[in-house]
Structures are given as C-alpha cells and as structure tokens.
Write a protein that binds this DNA or RNA. Structure first.
Length: 111
DNA sequence: TACGTGACAAGAG
DNA sequence: TCTCTTGCCACGT
C-alpha cells in the first residue's frame, strides 16, 4: 500500500476488506496498521469516513461487539439494520455471537 | 502554533 | 472479577 496515503486512508483500505456478514474492531485495525494503542484514531477515522464512499463503517465495532458508533449514522438504528441485512445478529446495540462473526485483519490479511 | 477532542484498548489496583 | 486510569495520534478550532 502507498505510504503516501494518510493513516486514515489506510484505515479505510482495511475496512473495505472486511467481508459482508463479518465485523472487526477498532483495536484490530489499529494493530494491523502497526499502531496498536491508537484505536481511538480508528474511531476518529470512522467519524471522517462519512465523506468516503465504500467504507463499511458499520462493520467496525468496539472490542466487545458494541455498536458504539451507531449514533453517528443517520437514523437511530441504521447501523444495526445494515448489519442485520448482512446476516449479523444485533441485540441491544451489541453483536450477538461476536466471536463467531469477528474478522481479524491480523489473521486474515497477514501472510 | 498550541491545545482539546475523540465511534477505544489494555493494564493495574 | 470489576472499575478506574493512562496511552495513543491525527484533526479541528
């Protein structure tokens, strides 16, 4: 990937690689980018991803599967609807069977 | 130019 | 086992 891309752009690249019906976490993305501990930056990147197309920010949740960013989507439960439309069960703003649908870029993308 | 903010994570008590 | 505190870094004002 181009190093000229900003940290945000690299975050978007990883998020785009998350397959439908799967979710990942902010920390996993941060770790994959070599910035473990910068999970907050990933959240900030998601906040700025609204202007970016093809960035499935709804597939990014916190480490316990909680939809912490749902309030940043249009509509109260748009994020939940998007996930459910992909087969992810969301219950009480939290991904059900989180471990089952969890997608770790460090495991899936790292050779 | 400098400071505060932010959709988190991990360690310590 | 649960709760609190600290760290991390780019963007906006």
């Amino acid at each position: 990937m181009n190093q000229s891309d900003s940290f945000f752009q690299r975050v978007y690249e990883v998020v785009r690689l998350v397959p439908a019906g799967r979710v990942t976490s902010y920390g996993a993305i941060a770790r994959y980018l070599g910035s473990a501990g910068s999970a907050r930056m990933v959240g900030w990147a998601m906040n700025a991803s609204h202007g970016q197309s093809d960035v499935p920010a709804h597939r990014v949740v916190n480490r316990v599967g909680l939809l912490s960013g749902k309030h940043h989507f249009q509509g109260t439960n748009l994020m939940q609807q998007l996930l459910e439309s992909e087969g992810v069960v969301v219950e009480d703003n939290q991904v059900r069977d989180f471990k089952e649908v969890y997608w770790d870029p460090n495991l899936e993308l790292n050779p």
